[in-house]
Amino acid sequence: MSLGVWVSCSENDSMRIIRIIKSINTARHAAAALCLLLAGTAGAAETRPPLTLAGPASVVSFPLLHMIDSGALKSHADRVTFRLWQNPDQLRVLLANGQVDYTAAPANLPALLANRGEPVRLLNISVWGQLWLVSRDPQVRRYADLSGKVLLTSFSRDLPAILLDEVLRAEHVAGKVTLRRTRDMQDAVALMLAGQADHAVLGEPMASLLLWRNARAGGAPLYRSQSLASAWREAFPGQPALPQAGLMASSRRAPDLALSRAVEHAYAASARWCSAQPRACAELTHRHLPQLPVAAIEASIRVTRLDSRPASEVRPQLEALYRLIADKHPQAIGGRLPDVGFYGP
């Protein structure tokens, strides 16, 4: 029957039918092309997974926050977020659970993980000392002046504790200073503000926060006595640089060398911006960490050497520190120096 209908059509009717068929085919082709385009777009999205950056509420993390706000990694990830951690133990858990991609960390932690078989990589060192001695006594100008006194410290097993122990030993006051351990730096700040302690060693920005809050409250004068980095230079003239903290790649990101290089380069650029624009960096950081006042953040940037250097470039300084740790605190780095491939990016 359909053949009979076709034969009885006029020439004009036939042409209209042909045009309809062509239109249908064209539409099918267009639909197929659109599907391919959408599939390609979806595939591209899948190759740009979100990235989680992490760090403590300290100067080493400030460039990470600028990287997020400036979109420094927009060509590498569709979404970049920041996760705050409170202590190295918490960071170890986050890394073990695959919850962070790149994180700020004390220089010993990635070495420890690498020596335990985790394929992490240290990308850079950006903070070269951020610990300060704060005192109520204007005569206490150096760590050596603490003999016979009580010193508040929240550090017990991590890198700052090791550095403090080494400086006190080098100044010949180890055993002559009573270390009063606090739960964390916030507790040390509270005790100093309440007049229940006279001396404390604090990391930035907590040292600056203590001085700012004390001034605002009209308390008895407190003094920023000596940075631990300065004491380190005096105590160890053969290895004066103190590579304290930097950026590391997690075990799942370390094999991606191109991405790790991009992250390290972006971090370095943001670190330069923070150093050159301390007020703007402080205001940006305050938006992410509102518990810290802008003035204290700005002061912490101004007194901290924020100088991002690739780990491979500063490997001699790192190995000098690792050798000292391995000699007296071997458990802090896993007992030996990391392999050459550890030093990134």
Rank of each mutant, 00 (worst) to 15 (best):
G195W: 07
V134F: 10
Y143D: 01
F155E: 10
G129E: 10
L131G: 15
L179V: 07
L179D: 00
A174T: 08
D165V: 06
I162R: 11
R136T: 02
P110N: 04
V93A: 11
L193W: 03
D89C: 01
P138F: 10
H199F: 06
L202E: 01
V201P: 05
V120H: 10
A197G: 01
K176P: 05
H199Q: 07
K149C: 00
Y143A: 08
P88K: 07
R183M: 10
L112K: 14
A170Y: 04
V150S: 13
R157N: 07
P106H: 09
V173F: 06
D165P: 06
A170C: 08
T153R: 07
G175Q: 12
R121K: 14
H172K: 15
P119T: 02
V167Y: 06
L168G: 12
N124D: 15
V177P: 02
D101S: 12
P110C: 03
D158F: 05
V173M: 06
D89E: 12
V189A: 00
A114T: 02
L109G: 10
N115F: 13
N108W: 11
L193V: 05
A104W: 01
R83W: 12
P119Q: 01
A197T: 01
P119R: 04
D187C: 00
A96W: 03
R142N: 08
R169Q: 15
M192D: 02
L159S: 01
G129A: 08
R83G: 07
N115T: 12
R116E: 15
G148D: 04
Q86L: 06
A197Y: 02
A161P: 06
A194M: 03
V100P: 03
R169A: 15
D165T: 15
G117D: 09
A105T: 15
L168T: 12
D145I: 08
L163I: 15
V201G: 03
A105E: 09
P138T: 12
S147L: 11
V100Y: 00
I125M: 04
P119Y: 02
Q139V: 03
Q130T: 08
L91Y: 01
L164P: 05
L133G: 12
R141M: 10
T103P: 09
D184Y: 11
L123K: 00
V177K: 05
A144W: 06
K176I: 01
V167C: 07
V100L: 01
P88G: 05
G98Q: 15
N115A: 08
L146A: 03
P138R: 14
V93I: 14
M192L: 05
A194Y: 03
H199M: 04
N108L: 09
Q86F: 10
L179F: 04
V150A: 11
G129N: 12
L84K: 09
M185E: 15
Q90S: 09
L159F: 04
R180V: 02
L91H: 00
V167E: 09
S126I: 03
S126C: 10
D137Q: 05
L152K: 07
A194C: 00
W128Q: 11
L95A: 14
